Amino acid sequence: MSSEISSFRIDVPQEQLDDLHRRLTAVRWPDEAPGVGWAQGIPLDYIRELAGYWRDSYDWRAQEARLNTFPQFRTEIDGHELHFVHVRSAEPGALPLVLTHGWPGSIVEFLELIGPLTDPVAHGGDAADAFHVVVPTIPGYGLSGPAVGWSPTRAARAWAELMSRLGYDRYAAHGEDTGAAISRELAVIDAEHVVAVHLTMIASATVTAETADPGDPAEQHAARLAQRAQYELGAYAMLQASRPQTLSYALTDSPVGQLAWIVERFKDWTDSADVPEDAVDRDAMLTNVMIYWLNGTAGSSARYYYESAATWGRTEPDTDVPVAVAVLPHDIGVPVRRIAEKNHNIVRWTEFARGGHFAAMEVPDLLIDDLRGAFRDYRG
């Protein structure tokens, strides 16, 4: 395995964009039951309008240029070419921080965070809160390309190697969704170097109607979210955990299929009222979809669910690494502190007043403040 790190720049061939345009022009649309709104999935009129905007108004080249303003690299780790963004702060006391996306996310989730985290003074902050920021793309996702046999544990081992390769002996970690699982695994397998982690999810720290404290409104809210996640919103997870290959044919061949599969998650999991754009920027959401479409990673990203399904419901190994948790009220599920404290060293617990699953896209201001506060005591 080579330890070489090479520069990377996104440069999508025009033929791929032309092919996407042809496919979006030749969509075969389904029928729809009248008056159902979002109850049976994405409404036909909404997805037709969004697909039309994607084809006629969305500017990939502008988004590509913006992505390329961030230094990007590739390096081989555990047999796979890993893509990552790496932005070093000019502040001498900056703390290295690895940010990890989840499904169906990408590095696009964190673009609004990189500037304020690496250059806090330019964004109204304190130089003492600066970070060197590393944003890897999980193998099997987006710009790291298709992959087989990867799980959060294997990804965490790769992250530990990456941070070592970059020369970071002490670092912090933040993750959302699958990224939270990977960040937590880092605290277990690389505790010697991880000073603290910040999570928006702890999968094992949820409650049900039977296990929630009946006198605690927060736990009752968590139980309602858990029930909705299991019985209304969980079909996507069962399909990806059991038949990712079958799903991949539809999503890899149809851009509208890929669009609908991801955008529905943005509607269901965010602090949105009528459409996902109530919570996240439309072009940012489409750029996230493009990262999956252009790199053909619908199936390989879904396989993470298949690879991890055997561990669902298990309590994670104990960790003594300091853990900060941010709870988003409109997430697909929220952790409960008394459960989390059984096997985590919880040092900070912040309950946001707004926001959902894609915290870095929905409430970047709140997340930036919480990351600064969470890691302030672990800088040296």
Rank of each mutant, 00 (worst) to 15 (best):
D31M: 09
G52K: 06
A310D: 13
A226K: 00
A360M: 09
T319H: 09
A353Q: 15
D213E: 02
P30L: 04
F70G: 10
V275F: 13
I10V: 15
L97R: 08
V98Q: 10
E232G: 02
A173R: 03
A279L: 01
A260H: 06
D78W: 05
D377C: 07
P322D: 11
L67Q: 03
W269I: 07
D370A: 13
A209T: 01
R184A: 09
R228I: 01
P120L: 08
V207K: 04
G373N: 15
L162D: 06
P96T: 11
P152F: 05
A353T: 15
M1K: 03
G355I: 05
D45P: 00
R337V: 05
G257C: 04
L294Q: 10
P96M: 12
D365I: 03
E49I: 00
S301T: 14
A212I: 00
S308P: 00
L199C: 08
P329K: 00
Y231P: 01
G175P: 03
V36I: 13
A33C: 02
G93R: 07
M361N: 09
S144P: 06
M361I: 08
Y58R: 06
D31I: 07
P120T: 08
A250I: 06
E264S: 10
G149N: 07
G234T: 03
Y306N: 10
L247F: 11
A65P: 00
I339Y: 05
D331L: 07
Q14A: 14
G52W: 03
S6C: 05
T208Q: 01
P71F: 12
T75E: 06
W159H: 13
E264R: 09
W261T: 01
M285C: 09
L82Q: 04
L162Q: 03
D377Q: 14
S301D: 10
E49L: 07
A205Q: 02
G79S: 04
D45G: 06
T69P: 01
A158D: 02
I77S: 02
S248C: 12
E81L: 12
V321R: 01
Q16N: 10
S6W: 01
A260R: 05
W312Y: 08
Y141W: 13
F266R: 04
L239Q: 14
P116C: 09
E219Q: 06
D283F: 02
R282I: 08
L371G: 13
W38V: 03
V327K: 04
N288L: 03
T153I: 07
S164E: 11
I5W: 06
